[in-house]
Design a protein around this nucleic acid. Structure first.
Length: 258
DNA sequence: ATGGTGGCCCGGCCA
């Protein structure tokens, strides 16, 4: 079972690359963020042609999240408990191949003194309460997406460059820590202890080619799934070439249950 | 260099 997540920064702009990436890597489940589409504009047919069903939650120009799956899309839920209650189309859930999957797009926060930073912390607290209300740590649960948080200093190209910046502050990291303490695991770290591996690079100033990035796209799994993980790949090749997203996809290979 | 690019969709916001 292959589970992946990718912030595509507009699905319309990225569809050719998304199709190509699916054909190359054959994910069973792919979480998408920043589709920037209304539900009615989601390319259901193009994914169906590839053998995938989808659950999408978007209202147009901003945000928008989706799960595409070739192992089923059961019991889709948009928002935390209704499509209106997640502050802008930032979470969608569905059961795919026996796994309860969530595609999340955590607010950026902009800067620690901006009101959006407070909103980011509120949103993360709501995510935590949503998970603890609906699930138990023993469930087969995947929370995948763009967290806009670098879990620790290995996950930024230069910690000194992020002094006073969002994505690395203690409150943000503690908010992520709440999810981890509850029973989720940043599964990349089960397989890789190295720093300097990133999933996002600013488009500007040649940051990708200069190696100036952050690892902010995460696959969080409960223990029952994390122990099935055989490999975790951040596909930086997908950040190369013409019209890339500013994010690279993360791909997790899961072995059979039991 | 307090800049830069890219997406939305055409002036300005958002990342």
């Amino acid at each position: 079972m292959r589970l992946a997540t990718w912030n595509v920064n507009s699905l319309t702009a990225r569809m050719p690359r998304v199709v190509g990436w699916i054909e190359e890597h054959q994910p069973d489940i792919l979480c998408l963020q920043e589709t920037k589409l209304a539900d009615g504009a989601f390319p259901v047919g193009e994914f169906a042609d590839l053998g995938y069903e989808a659950a999408h939650h978007g209202d147009g120009r901003w945000n928008g999240v989706a799960i595409v799956s070739r192992v089923g899309v059961e019991d889709p839920v948009a928002g935390f408990s209704s499509p209106e209650d997640d502050y802008g189309c930032r979470i969608v859930a569905a059961t795919c191949g026996g796994i309860r999957v969530h595609s999340v797009y955590v607010p950026n926060g902009r800067s620690p003194d901006h009101e959006q930073y407070g909103f980011k912390l509120v949103w993360l607290a709501r995510l935590a309460s949503f998970l603890t209300e609906h699930y138990r740590p023993g469930d087969d649960l995947a929370v995948c997406g763009d967290f806009n948080i670098a879990p620790d200093d290995r996950d930024v190209w230069d910690p000194a460059a992020f002094e006073g910046a969002t994505h690395v502050t203690d409150p943000e990291r503690r908010a992520l820590g709440v999810l981890l303490e509850w029973g989720l695991e940043d599964v990349y770290r089960r397989h890789h202890a190295d720093g300097g591996v990133f999933s996002w690079w600013d488009y500007r100033a040649g940051d990708f080619h200069q190696g100036r990035g952050m690892r902010i796209d995460l696959v969080l799994l409960t223990e029952s799934l994390a122990r099935r993980s055989q490999s975790v790949l951040i596909d930086r090749n997908a950040r190369k070439g013409k019209k890339p997203s500013d994010h690279a996809p993360v791909l997790v290979e899961l072995g059979p249950a039991g």
